[in-house]
Design a protein around this nucleic acid. Structure first.
Length: 284
DNA sequence: ACGGATGTTCGCGC
DNA sequence: CGCGCGAACATCCG
């Protein structure tokens, strides 16, 4: 459960679960999920605390509790927060648990252990180094197109890689970038420095549209689209659809590894080379 | 059975 | 210093 839309969804759920329900006890298993603080600190600092504020920064969740205690949570690729009613069995791969006054239990479940939990003390979210390193968040801050244009055009890296860089824009991952570039009609391999202002504007619009679409899909019922059983169809236009027909022009979607991640694109709607400007017939 | 998967970080080489 | 690449993390799913 990783990119901005899913983390936003998780933030809303956690906020609902924890508002007005104090933590009575906490336990964390000894796994690599705890980085920056130990399971012991988790178990010692959280009991008795209540949630004051919960904010999402890119893919990070920052839970500000009373008494100056802050819980930093990153879901990695497979992490999720799950609430269990009193007596219900734990989900698989529960790595940490918060027992609440109501009797329900919040589990942090993470099969692959790629997520992270850390307990911090007396810091403002913006002063946490991991948060301070993030670029603007498209949902809260919007996208500053002139700033993105300047940044993109100063780099020769593939636009896919630029957009996945959390210091450029916070919260985008492989899915959102793949979808946004398809919507914008821009090939993921295009060097940032080759992009026109209009293309960057189209990419910004594509990002916003893709995020909105994904949030709507999540709200409309499903958090599960990949691997969580085929019960829920893939809600994306091109992600994980290599070989299928482009939803716009019906040509076969292609796949390529860019920046170490699988990209899917339409070779016709997202041309790799900008179409040469028509030239006058050569003089003779 | 093999290959790939929503993320991040680290080491190595150029 | 910047950048690219591959590996690593641990498990699940088709």
């Amino acid at each position: 459960m990783p990119e901005l839309p899913e983390v936003e969804h998780a933030a809303a759920s956690l906020r609902r679960f924890l508002t007005g329900d104090a933590i009575t006890s906490a336990e964390g298993d000894r796994t690599r999920v705890f980085r920056g603080s130990s399971p012991d600190v988790f178990a010692r600092e959280l009991p008795g605390r209540t949630l004051e504020r919960l904010a999402r920064f890119g893919k990070y969740l920052v839970l500000e509790l009373d008494a100056g205690v802050v819980l930093l949570s990153h879901l990695g690729m497979s992490g999720k927060w799950v609430r269990r009613a009193p007596g219900e069995p734990a989900p698989g791969h529960s790595r940490a648990r918060l027992r609440l006054a109501s009797g329900s239990v919040l589990h942090y479940s993470d099969p692959r252990l790629l997520g992270r939990l850390a307990v911090l003390r007396g810091v403002l979210p913006r002063d946490i180094p991991e948060i301070a390193a993030l670029g603007p968040d498209p949902l809260r801050d919007g996208i500053d197109v002139p700033a993105l244009t300047q940044r993109a055009r100063a780099s020769a890296r593939p636009v896919k890689v630029i957009l996945m860089d959390q210091a450029v824009i916070a919260g985008l991952g492989n899915i959102q970038v793949t979808e946004a570039l398809f919507r914008a009609g821009v090939h993921p391999s295009r060097p940032g420095c080759s992009l026109s202002r209009a293309e960057v504007a189209a990419i910004a619009a594509g990002i916003e549209a893709s995020i909105a679409h994904t949030i709507a899909a999540l709200g409309a019922g499903e958090i599960a689209y990949l691997s969580e059983s085929s019960a829920t169809p893939n809600p994306f236009q091109v992600y994980a659809r290599a070989g299928e027909a482009c939803p716009r022009c019906r040509v076969a979607l292609e796949r390529r590894t860019i920046g170490g991640r699988t990209s899917v694109f339409c070779p016709r709607c997202q041309p790799e080379r900008r179409r040469a400007r028509p030239r006058r017939a050569p003089q003779r």
